[in-house]
Computed example of a mutant assay.
Amino acid sequence: MSDFAGDDASTPANPMVNTVLGPVPAAELGVTAVHEALLSVVPGAEYAPDITMDRAEIFEILAGKLRDFAEAGGGTVVDSTGMFHGRDLPLYEALSRSTGVHIVASTGMGPEEMLGGYFLTPQTNPPTPWPAEKFADLFSREVAEGMVIPRLERRAAAGLVATAADRAGITPTEESLFQGAARTALATGIPVSVRFGSDAVRELELVLAEGLQADRVVVGGLDRKDSAGTAVEIARRGAYAAIDHVGLNDDGSYLDDSERAALVLELVAAGCADRILLSSNSIGAAFGQPDYDLPYGHVLTSFLPFLLTQGLTEADARLITAENPQRLLSVR
């Protein structure tokens, strides 16, 4: 497997990736699911009297799903939920040790409607949204000093800074989130994952305006129907285009898998195979929201075989599922 030396002037010869068990060589990640959720807890659900969260039971559920992923050929799962949706670092560490699957956890937050009240409370007079530099400091500390377990300690370094905007249009607070995420990436070397709101290209430009190189950014949700025509443009600008709801075939706002396959092949034909990422946005255990019990290995067991029948080469399949994620996640 390539160690990516020479692929990009800023890529180190032996790149490392931040996982919950510490840095590991990028070449060891294997096939990577780049946008999944281990736990997804709507903020506040952990206090609801009608919701039971048994950590031992959650461990067994998630361990089973990760072992299935490994048996399907998977090596790494990226938990891209950010700071406030159930991230449980000791649990993730135990899962990684038990299953052998690498887990990359993330810092970041968004969209605005999912932020805690503290981050929506104006800190200035007259009132203004949280500035980008405060978000950047918050997220960067989770890389440099370890991710927070509230009021207890810090653990492993975050491997990704993830944020999202409102589909109705990016808000001023979300603009600060995007800018703060970009500044975190510049300061720490980890990549940025953004879920666009209403205008993927404009919101990518908001991140790039901070001075971040496009190949340090992944734009997610490009299999939404309202993003038609933008995936190739995003990829040609040098950012990674994530088709990350693979397996979602009953939501009219998204492409189905047949249409997703056509989009992948369109990107390949446009010369952008090295900028494609695939994932399923699966949720291992959900609390306060409906389950989305799609296997982490769905891309490998169902979607990729279909793509191969449609003309995708084995080399491009390897590039998309392993080499692209490894290059993106490398700290540089």
Rank of each mutant, 00 (worst) to 15 (best):
A70M: 13
G229D: 12
A72E: 09
H85L: 14
F69L: 03
H85V: 13
E205T: 05
L307H: 03
A164S: 15
L160G: 01
P129I: 04
E93F: 02
N125R: 11
H245M: 12
F178N: 02
F84H: 14
A37R: 03
A37G: 05
T99K: 09
L307I: 10
G22W: 05
A168E: 13
L304N: 02
I149E: 15
L115E: 04
L29V: 08
F59Q: 08
S198F: 03
T124Q: 13
M16G: 03
F4Q: 06
R318G: 12
L177A: 08
G116I: 06
A37Y: 10
S279I: 03
T19I: 04
P49E: 11
V217S: 01
E142D: 15
E60K: 11
T124I: 06
W130G: 01
A63E: 13
T52F: 08
R332Q: 06
K134P: 00
Y254D: 02
A9F: 13
D7G: 07
G284S: 02
L278T: 01
D250Y: 10
L38E: 01
G86P: 11
S176W: 03
G297E: 07
V20P: 00
H35I: 00
V148Y: 07
N18D: 06
H102V: 01
E112H: 05
S253R: 09
I103W: 01
P295Q: 11
T81E: 11
A56H: 14
P127V: 08
E210Y: 08
C272Y: 00
S2P: 13
A45L: 05
I149M: 12
P131F: 06
S40N: 13
F84W: 12
C272N: 01
M53F: 07
H102M: 02
A94K: 14
R183Q: 15
E233F: 04
A94S: 15
E266G: 09
V34G: 00
A105L: 00
T32D: 01
D226F: 13
M114D: 12
V218T: 09
L208Q: 02
F178L: 15
L267S: 00
A27N: 09
M16S: 08
P126Y: 05
A45K: 04
G229A: 09
A63W: 06
R155I: 04
A144W: 08
A136C: 08
G197K: 04
T121N: 12
E174Y: 02
D244M: 04
G288Q: 03
E259M: 02
E113C: 12
D88T: 08
A286Q: 08
E205H: 13
T184Y: 07
G297C: 10
L66V: 07
A181E: 12
F303P: 02
L265F: 06
N125V: 13
M53I: 15
G238P: 07
V268Y: 10
E36A: 05
F4V: 03
L95H: 03
Q289C: 14
